[in-house]
């Protein structure tokens, strides 16, 4: 009986995109400068095919399409809010100090994923959400005068048809096998202080396929839900 309930829960949950945001305490945030625009950093997507035997095979076309659609999707969703954001491509600025700040952001993002969304907590980060990149982030403001930057990263796999057949077969003999899944994470950084003021990670539902414009925008909407913008 219990297994059926569990299966039902899984089915219900599998139907929609789920996310749980982390927000910095109000005293750690600084009010937005009136009239300023934020930076939406061109999203990064690393997507792959999950082969029958469970290997991940990188797909350049999916990764590229998803990055483009996510950029458009986030722009469309952010346009609905009061605080405007401009899309910027920083991939050409990976040299020098700016590149160091961008890599630090990646490292901090990975650490947030591990210790805020994983099973373990860092003892020093147990109370509240308190992460910062330091004031080096001012370099990213450049001439834009932007207060915030939004970083978006997508990772994930889709099961090959063979893998899906295997899932059904394995389910019959009661062996669970992992299937493809996609996660999208978004990090809002205050460029004046370097503080990560909000971070959200979403597990995409099957309806929200980021390789399509609609799916990417729907995902963007789910991830941005509750963002302090």
């Amino acid at each position: 009986m219990r297994i059926w309930l569990l299966a039902l829960c899984c089915l219900v949950l599998a139907g929609c995109t789920t996310s749980r945001a982390r927000v910095a305490a109000p005293e750690l945030t600084t009010p937005v400068t009136a009239g300023s625009a934020g930076l939406l950093v061109k999203p990064v997507a690393r997507l792959a095919l999950l082969t029958v035997a469970g290997l991940t095979e990188r797909r350049d076309d999916w990764s590229r399409d998803a990055a483009t659609h996510l950029a458009a999707g986030f722009q469309a969703e952010l346009a609905k809010r009061d605080h405007p954001f401009n899309l910027v491509d920083l991939s050409g600025q990976m040299e020098g100090r700016t590149g160091q700040v961008l890599r630090l952001n990646e490292a901090v993002g990975d650490t947030i994923q591990t210790y805020e969304f994983g099973a373990q907590r860092l003892p020093t980060k147990a109370k509240g959400f308190d992460w910062t990149l330091g004031e080096g982030t001012r370099l990213l403001r450049g001439d834009s005068g932007a207060d915030h930057a939004l970083f978006v990263t997508a990772r994930g796999t889709w099961s090959s048809p063979g893998r899906k057949v295997l899932l059904v077969g394995a389910a019959i003999i009661g062996t669970p096998i992992p299937m493809g899944s996609q996660t999208l994470s978004a990090s809002l950084v205050d460029l004046r202080t370097g503080r990560v003021i909000w971070y959200n990670q979403a597990l995409a539902g099957p309806a929200d396929d980021m390789r399509t414009p609609e799916g990417a925008q729907a995902l963007a909407a789910s991830v941005l839900k509750g963002a302090p913008l």
């Binding site: 095979e57 990188r58 797909r59 350049d60 076309d61």
Partner: peptide, 8 residues
């Protein structure tokens, strides 16, 4: 594009 090699 789309080939395993392009992924590599």
């Amino acid at each position: 594009s789309g080939s395993p090699e392009a992924g590599l």
